[in-house]
Every structure is written in C-alpha cells, then in structure tokens.
Nucleic acid binder design. Structure first.
Lengths: 177, 177
DNA sequence: CTTGGACAGTCAACAAGGCTGACGTAAAAA
DNA sequence: TTTTTACGTCAGCCTTGTTGACTGTCCAAG
C-alpha cells in the first residue's frame, strides 16, 4: 500500500538516476521531523486544556483513549500499546478506577488478567477529548482533500516500527462503524 | 461538535455537493490522531536511544536541535519555540553549557541577551541525533514518493496553530543549503 | 498431587522534567 | 532618573517516566 511510484521522470530540476530525489535531501528530511514536532505539540494542546480542568495529564488521556477503543483489554495489552512501564500505567490506572472512569474486573478465562472498560463517565470524557482533537483534524483534512489525507496517513503508517505496524493499524481500524 | 457526517441531508451515503466526504468521518479523524501518536512515538525513540547513552533526555535534544538550526539565538527566542518555562529550559541549558555542548556569549548589540551557539562537540551530537531520525524519514519518504511527501508536510503544517504557523515554517526553512 | 517456573498485576522509591512564584542584576528604553 | 526588558536562580510542587521487589494465578514436569 501507500506507494505512489515516485514516477515522474522529472527532466527539469535535478534528475538523479532518472528521478528527482530532491525531496530526500537531509534538509527535507529534517523539515519532516520538525513539522512532526510542531504539529504534535499543537495537536495535543487541545486535549491538554480539557484534561487540566479535571486534574488529569496526558497519561490519563492515552489510557482512557485506548480503553475506549478496545473495551475489555488487559493491563499488559495496554502496556504494549503505550510502551511505558507497569508502574507508570498503574499509577494512572488506579486513579482512573478510583475516580470511576474505568472499571477493572477479573478476567473470565484467566483470573490473573484484568478486563478494563470505561464507565459512562469515562466514556463521556474520552469522547470529549476525541472531539477536541477532531475539530482541528477536520479543518485540516477538509482543506487538504482526500488524496492528501490518504498520503498523510500512509506516511505516518510508514514511520511506525516495522514490527509494530500491523498491530497499530489493526488497533486504529474502525470497529463500531 | 463531533457529529457524524457533518451535514449531508442523507439520501445515499456518498456524494455531497459532488464530493465524497467519507474521509471526514469521526472515525477517519480519530485514525489521523492515533497515527500521529504511533508515528511520533516511534520516530522519537531513535534519538532517545542515542541520548540515553550520554545521560540526556528529550529536553536536551530539543534544545540542542534548535540552537543548531538557529545559531546565535537568544534564550527568549528558544523559550518561544519550545513553549516551556524559563526554569525548565534553564536547568537543561545550564547542563549543556557545563558539558561544553553549548556556548553562551553576551550579545553584541544588546548585552542583556545571550547568543547561544553549539560547540564542536555539541554540533556533532546534534548531527548524530538528526541523522538517527533522518534514516527513518528517508526510508518512509522514498517509499511514499514526492507527492505524498508534499501532502504529508502540508497536512502537518495545517495542524500548527494559526498564529504560530508562520514562525514555525520560517524556522524550518533551509538556511545553509 | 505437588512444586517450580512463568506470567499478570500491584506497590514503593526515585529521577527527569514540566510548572509557578519570587527575587536579583544588568542593560536598554523612556 | 525611572521603568522595562532579558536573563539567571532559588524554592517547591506535580506528572510521569524508571527499576526492583512482591503477591496471586496458571500450567506443566516430576
């Protein structure tokens, strides 16, 4: 998927091996990295404001979000998604359970596992956070158009570690239509 | 906010005003946000490994990076780019100066300002960090092709806060060709 | 059946790096 | 001269990352 044959025999600017590879200079690559920094910084800020109101941080956000998207997942599964240590997650998780945002129940088949699900209040917050970020996304996507959005997503997907890409893409799949 | 199809007087489920707006559903937007999370997580990990070897963190990385890209910038300018408080920056900056990575000299025209520049050692580290991230970017960009890269950058630029976009784009401009 | 290893989860203690607020100094601007 | 600006620093707080030890559960080999 994704590709886009990089065709275009160029001819003008700076042909290299029959192709224009100007978009692969160090400066171009660096710009990509820096744009990720700035875009991520501002994107996350929308939700941060909502979280601050309730005394939560980004860790709570990430936790709520993925429990929302994968109700019933275990602590270990969540750890793999977030790539933090158990205690980092557990501290936040304990808080969210105490605040009645997340319910943690003993697993049916394996009683060592916990099944994590959002309460109604938790889901309301998860949805509010998602909406805050979607507003920005919607404006940008609309201005960019469907093809640019597709390209944007392909490039981001390509940046995920090879051995984790499949899991990540499966995770973000739309599941409730 | 956050509705579903953002208009559409129903009818079928596709064309609106002659265009297909399926790429603007909440699920699509959420996928964009999540892809940013996963891509950023893995992109930053490359540099993190290098930093950990020297006992530095991401704060040091950001600091080194922007002093590298804008040699001679002042503390206040750096604060505006990073959006952190003076104390957060100063803690890290003091360390980097002590480690002889950054040199802080009194400004020429305004002696209240400090002009921050990298030492040779600092520049070597900044380049190494950049290279680590460029490797991933290069592979992804090459696979995506120039048009997708252009789209990717446009979308990211669109995500930056309106009132900060100009400054950010000016900052990432190639300056030494 | 028992026992030992592996796995899931919890908790304690610590470090990094954000934050606010207050204060001091030097230099520029009014 | 007075005020404002740029910078540095102290004290103290909070979130969120880390490691390491611990409990409880499952499963398989003896």
């Amino acid at each position: 998927m994704s590709h886009k044959p990089a065709s275009r025999p160029s001819r003008a600017a700076k042909p290299v091996g029959g192709e224009n590879l100007l978009f692969l200079t160090d400066a171009q690559l660096r710009q990509g990295v820096e744009l990720m920094f700035f875009a991520y910084r501002d994107m996350i800020a929308d939700a941060d404001r909502l979280l601050a109101d309730r005394g939560y941080g980004r860790a709570h956000h990430r936790c709520l979000h993925f429990v929302w998207r994968r109700p019933g997942l275990s602590v270990t599964e969540l750890l793999e998604i977030l790539r933090v240590t158990k205690q980092s997650l557990n501290r936040v998780l304990r808080q969210l359970v105490a605040d009645d945002m997340i319910r943690s129940t003993v697993g049916d088949v394996d009683r060592r596992r916990r099944a994590l699900v959002l309460t109604e209040e938790g889901e309301a917050l998860a949805r509010a956070l998602s909406s805050a970020q979607n507003e920005r996304m919607r404006r940008v996507f609309r201005e960019a158009g469907p093809e640019a959005v597709q390209a944007f997503k392909s490039v981001l997907a390509g940046m995920i570690d090879d051995d984790k890409r499949e899991a990540a893409l499966a995770l973000i799949e739309d599941r409730d239509a």
